[in-house]
Design a protein around this nucleic acid. Structure first.
Lengths: 270, 270
DNA sequence: TGCTACGGTGAACAGTGTTCGCTCCTCCGC
DNA sequence: GCGGAGGAGCGAACACTGTTCACCGTAGCA
């Protein structure tokens, strides 16, 4: 805020012509007039840099070169801001036209896309977990998911629960991913930027710990040590997803046809 | 933790004999000397009264008639305290001896008991969601769950993921329950003690809202309005659980035998 | 009787979300 | 061209938060 063109990445370029915008007598530089959109954008910047615990209204204000109280003219509270960020997550999420023959793949795509979006911003799963997509602008997305289930032929009770189930699964899975990442980061480097390869290191450490447990008390934990904590989370995510999908498929009227593994994409269980 | 006598519900009774403990000159009353256990207990009291957002170290200290800094002699941080509370949740959780023929019922019992415990303290699901049961004293519980899955005959990869899956499901479900409860409470009565019957009222309100949506844009949401938000959460919990169990069952070698609904307890899908 | 050890105190620090009175800039109507 | 009105942003304040640290009073031991 000291000089024009300082704190934000792309302020209007200097433009020597138009000597207008005479750089207000105040410290505030002449810049676009602080909308909800700009606040949300700045909040994401702070979130990615400092995590949810470091996301304070003052930090967001500083990011914009503005005082805290200015934010409250556009955002009614911090919860309001978090809800805006949550809603923003769904922007551009593409809604498939339900196809009964491809419903499992459509759900898979939906879930994977959801996870990808949650991973696109630090601690986003924590924010997502604290909200429910029942605001007016998010209803189309839950409608779309329910459409897939219902047109696939699932009973209503099952379809209604399935939406909650996979949403919870996505959020919960990514949340746990984030916890592992945080734990790994805090264990070695304070600054998260340098502590990238320690994630793998921590997975090994955890495996070693499981393997070191007394064999008579923890036979199963030892046996599964290699699978409980693995660095390829993608695979784990797909497995959990597949379990849910199979459970749902068992409720289809013609369950016999597509029961165990028919669509050729289910991960093998070796 | 496995003492024959349960953990702490019985602090030393007043004992009118022994007029000692001369009620220190200070404001502090003469009382047992502030252990970790007593701090956790007080924290639960504050939690139930004021919720997680109202659970501050100062409140806990006040509950004990003690200054904040005194707490830090027994508890290294607030996170430490929360972890203690999380661990305490498992106290007395009974571990079944895995029985391959009853594995589904055992998992159901496990899940229902878990949910019951989460419901026993306000906002407990939020605390649980932020932790992972990989500390030394909690490992027996995950071992026990894995034992059920493995002895039932599930492939290792599936068993490893199943533990995470149902844990996440339990936490996520109860967390959402709590959000509904909170929303209903804040909508009418500020004080949570008087706002009991409004939960049902809000469910109706939500159903009405869904039913009022434009029929052409939200056909499925309208069709499922009655099931998305119902006051009998128990039923919804069991349905989600059943979906997961069926998915898991589909991975059993002899999947044909117990595929759709054999154990007679699965809820019908009418 | 003196002394040490320790559990608890109170004040302080740096930070939080939120509110409110005020200043100053901009723009509109005259 | 000028005066007034509106409003955006400022800065200080309030009531909190988690955490630390120098101090002290009491208890038990020598």
């Amino acid at each position: 805020m000291t000089d024009p063109a300082d704190s934000t990445p792309a302020p209007p370029p200097p433009s020597p012509w138009e000597r207008e915008r005479p750089a207000r007598t105040r410290a505030a530089v002449a810049r676009t007039p602080l909308s909800r959109e700009r606040i949300v954008e700045a909040a994401f910047t702070v979130l990615d840099r400092q995590g949810l615990d470091g996301l304070s209204m003052r930090q967001v204000a500083a990011e914009l070169g503005v005082t805290v109280s200015a934010l409250y003219a556009h955002v009614s509270s911090k919860d309001d801001l978090l809800e805006l960020m949550y809603t923003r997550l769904f922007d551009g999420f593409e809604l498939p036209r339900p196809d009964p023959d491809r419903w499992q793949e459509q759900v898979r795509d939906y879930a994977r896309a959801g996870r990808r979006r949650l991973l696109s911003h630090r601690d986003m799963a924590r924010i997502s977990m604290a909200h429910v997509p029942f605001t007016a602008e998010l209803l189309p997305y839950v409608e779309s998911l329910l459409a897939i289930f219902r047109t696939a032929g699932l009973p209503d009770r099952i379809a209604a629960e399935a939406g909650d189930l996979i949403s919870t699964y996505i959020d919960g899975f990514v949340l746990e991913e984030g916890m592992w990442r945080d734990r790994a980061a805090e264990q070695s480097g304070e600054d998260t930027s340098l502590a990238r390869p320690d994630w793998r290191e921590m997975a090994e450490e955890m495996q070693d710990y499981f393997a070191s447990l007394p064999a008579q008390d923890f036979p199963h934990l030892r046996a599964l040590a290699g699978m409980m904590v693995t660095d390829s989370s993608d695979e784990r995510f797909d497995i959990g997803l597949e379990i849910i999908l199979r459970g749902l498929a068992s409720y289809l009227p013609d369950a016999t046809k597509r029961a165990p593994s028919d669509d050729g994409r289910a991960p093998d269980t070796t």
